[in-house]
Amino acid sequence: MSRHNLHPKAEIADVISVTIGWDRPLQTFFAQVFFRTEAEAEEGEPLIWHGTAPGELPTAEAAIAIVAPFADIPTDLAERLTTEMRTTIGVKDSDHQATAKRRIFGSIH
């Protein structure tokens, strides 16, 4: 799994953090935007969270499009994410991961 914490845009005060990355076991990119809430004023709550289902976000660009309104996007981010995804090609699930996938999703994608 890769994970990049991005700088929230200064003009959006309620955004605490923005995270994007590649989840190899689910074979998807993911995007999270944490907002300040009354219940979670310091850490925030992930009110935007995509990439929790197998193959949900198949490209780095799809994940970047979700977080772009909320964070400053490095110019090389799509390339870095795609490289991180490609380095996992051929990596096999462990027995525990495969068992968990069968239970949760009915297959081992």
Rank of each mutant, 00 (worst) to 15 (best):
G55V: 10
A98I: 03
K92N: 06
E11D: 15
A10E: 15
L81V: 02
T19F: 00
L81D: 05
P25Y: 11
Q97E: 15
E84L: 11
H109W: 11
P54I: 03
T59C: 07
A78V: 06
R86S: 12
R3F: 09
F70G: 06
E42L: 07
G21M: 01
V91Q: 15
I104S: 07
R103Q: 13
A60Q: 04
N5I: 12
A78S: 15
A62Y: 01
L81M: 12
M85Y: 02
H50P: 00
A39T: 10
T52Q: 05
G21T: 03
G106I: 04
T88C: 13
Q32G: 02
D76S: 10
L47F: 07
D93A: 11
S94L: 06
H96A: 15
I20S: 07
G90A: 03
L81N: 05
R86P: 02
G90N: 10
R36K: 15
E11V: 00
R102D: 09
A71N: 09
A100H: 11
P8E: 07
G106K: 05
V67K: 04
T87K: 14
M85G: 01
F29C: 04
A53D: 12
E42R: 07
D72K: 12
R102F: 12
G106Q: 10
V15M: 05
L81S: 08
I48W: 00
P58Y: 06
P46M: 03
R80Q: 14
Q97V: 15
A71M: 10
I89H: 13
A10W: 00
L47Y: 07
L6E: 04
T88N: 08
A98Q: 05
T88G: 02
G44R: 01
I66M: 03
S2T: 14
A53G: 02
W22P: 11
P46V: 01
D14S: 13
L81F: 08
D95P: 08
E79K: 12
S107Y: 09
M1F: 08
G21V: 05
F35C: 02
L6I: 02
P54D: 05
E42F: 06
T99L: 14
H50K: 14
L47G: 04
P25K: 11
R86Q: 15
M1T: 13
A39R: 13
R103F: 10
I108W: 09
I64L: 03
V91F: 09
A78N: 10
K101L: 13
W49L: 11
I48G: 00
N5F: 11
R36D: 02
F30Q: 01
M85T: 00
P54F: 09
I104R: 14
G90S: 11
I16D: 00
E38A: 13
R3E: 14
L57P: 02
E56W: 05
A63R: 08
T75K: 11
H50D: 07
G44K: 03
T82E: 15
T52K: 09
T87E: 15
T83Y: 06
E56S: 08
F70W: 13
T87M: 14
D76F: 04
P69V: 05
A78I: 07
V15N: 10
D14R: 14
